[in-house]
Computed example of a mutant assay.
Amino acid sequence: MSDSVLPALLQSYLDELVPDRPAELRAMEALAAAEGFPIIGPACGQLCYLVARMVGARRIFELGSGFGYSTAWFARALKETHGDAGEVHHTVWEQDLSEQARRHLAALGLLDLVRFHVGEAVAALSAQAGGFDLIFSDIDKEDYPASLPVIERQLRPGGVLIVDNLLWGNRVLDPAADDPATAGIRRFTRLIADSPQWTGSILPIRDGLLLALKR
């Protein structure tokens, strides 16, 4: 499955418009490309950074963080807005990914802003004190619907939810696609759209990024 539903030239154009960024972030992008590791990419990273800056987020929780690429964008926003006062929670199943993220974030000078969790992401979110300003989700897609009650409980009113892969390589448009991941994305999207608690929109960049405000 392609990482982007956009034509390659258009995605490249959007990525090239992202302002210059630290060499370590570019190295992470090169590593992801070389290893075929899925990351949100520069255009989505810039959007996450921008939203965090716009809402003045101090507490951010990531459900699924990979080797720390999206974490770095959020942590940069916190650093530039609040100095060392904020926190980003990085969650992965694998200890080696957590350690890799620590190395990247240390190289970026952002390590002190990050709280690391190794284990199931929704359980880790549930175990925290609530009142997060921003929650980002990129977990297994079949688990998206079941995660929503925990997200709703832990995100403050007026907080922002960002969810990756809502277009899922355009499989959500294919009536014949009924695998658990695609079905989970469709169900989650409908739950957000039909809920009086949320105002949201899917931005068709990369693989579809949901941006939703908790009322």
Rank of each mutant, 00 (worst) to 15 (best):
K79I: 00
L6E: 10
S147W: 11
L105M: 01
I39G: 03
V172I: 15
R58S: 14
D133V: 01
K79Q: 02
R156Q: 15
S147P: 10
H89D: 01
L134M: 13
R21V: 15
P7M: 03
H117G: 03
V18M: 03
V122C: 07
L108K: 06
L155N: 10
L50I: 09
G169R: 04
A75K: 04
D3N: 13
R186D: 02
E120K: 15
D164A: 11
I205Q: 04
L14W: 15
S147N: 06
G131R: 05
R76S: 14
V150A: 00
D174E: 07
V150D: 00
A146E: 15
G131Y: 01
L161M: 12
L50Q: 13
D96F: 08
V160H: 12
S70F: 03
I202Y: 01
I162K: 02
A32W: 07
V160A: 08
L167H: 07
N165P: 14
Q95M: 03
R190Q: 13
Q154P: 06
V163R: 13
P38N: 03
R103H: 00
P196T: 02
V55S: 04
R156Y: 06
A75N: 06
R58G: 15
D143H: 11
C48M: 15
S2L: 05
N165W: 04
I185G: 03
R215N: 10
H104Q: 05
A52V: 10
L50T: 15
A176C: 03
Y69P: 11
W198N: 08
I162S: 01
A72N: 15
D20V: 09
D179F: 01
P145F: 14
S137F: 00
G200Y: 02
R153W: 01
E99Y: 04
L161T: 08
E35V: 00
A193Q: 02
L105Q: 05
R76N: 08
T91G: 03
M54T: 09
Q46E: 11
G130W: 05
D140R: 12
D3H: 13
H89Y: 06
R156K: 13
R26F: 09
V122D: 05
M54C: 12
L167K: 07
P38A: 01
P7T: 08
F188M: 09
A127Q: 13
A75G: 06
R190W: 06
F188Y: 14
P204V: 08
L97F: 02
L97K: 14
V92D: 15
I139N: 13
Q11V: 09
D164N: 08
L50D: 15
V172E: 03
Q46H: 12
I39M: 05
A107Q: 11
E29C: 07
W93V: 10
K214Y: 10
H117W: 07
